[in-house]
Amino acid sequence: MENRKITLTVDGLKKLEDELEYLKTKKRKEVSEKIKVALGFGDLSENSEYDEAKNEQAQVEIRINELENMLKNVTVIDAEDIDRTKVGIGTKVKILDVEFDEADWYTVVGSTEADPTREEEKTISNECPLFMAIKGKGVGETAQIDTPDGPVTYKILAIE
């Protein structure tokens, strides 16, 4: 993974740190036990359990490496530094899709922690086209995004 700066909220940072801790303290031990058990089955040339455990071990180590690299290059958005009069990283924004007259709340986060499919709290990335269109705008302002089906207009209803 390249060493580019990663923007996170405090919650996003905690989630990554918690995942890294879990992988290092629990998951490594679980995989190590799987390898030990699989070694007990004998001949490694036809031991699918051993192969699976070694593959899982490799995946865990790759993820640990990714997380460590991310955490070395992280910029944390401090809630007290967020300008709540304009859309930016760390703000919660209510956006209206003008054509369909549908509004939804989104929290703007760094690309690493974005997950627009989460129903309980929707997030959008600071790198997505929607954010790029509404970035820096205030309540009552509109933005337009060109899509394959034509332009879509959004209106900022509220910012928290």
Rank of each mutant, 00 (worst) to 15 (best):
E120K: 09
D146Y: 13
V152M: 07
E21N: 11
L130R: 07
F100H: 11
A38R: 07
G12K: 02
D78E: 13
T91L: 03
G150A: 00
F100V: 09
Q59C: 08
I124H: 03
D97G: 02
T75A: 12
E17W: 04
K24C: 00
F100I: 07
V31H: 00
E30V: 09
N65M: 11
E33I: 12
G88W: 05
S45W: 13
K92Y: 14
N126D: 14
E119A: 11
T112G: 10
L13D: 04
L157G: 11
V60D: 07
D104I: 13
Y50R: 10
L71D: 03
K137Q: 04
K36P: 10
S32C: 09
N73A: 11
T117E: 13
G88N: 10
K86L: 14
D101E: 15
L96C: 01
E121C: 08
E66W: 08
S111F: 06
V139H: 05
K26Q: 13
E46P: 09
P148D: 10
I77K: 06
A133E: 07
A143Y: 01
E19N: 12
T9S: 10
S125V: 00
Q59N: 12
V76E: 02
M70V: 15
I145S: 04
C128R: 07
T7Q: 02
V93W: 07
V87A: 09
K27I: 02
I145Q: 02
G150T: 00
T75E: 13
T123G: 03
R84F: 12
K14P: 06
S32G: 14
D51Y: 12
V93D: 01
D11G: 14
K24E: 12
T75N: 11
K135I: 09
I77R: 06
K137W: 07
G140E: 00
K94E: 14
E19A: 08
D83K: 05
T117Y: 11
T75K: 11
V152N: 00
I89E: 08
E21M: 08
K137L: 15
Y106R: 10
D81P: 06
E2R: 15
G42C: 04
T7I: 10
G88E: 06
K29P: 08
G88C: 08
F131P: 04
K92D: 11
Y154C: 00
S125E: 01
Y106N: 03
Y50H: 12
K54E: 05
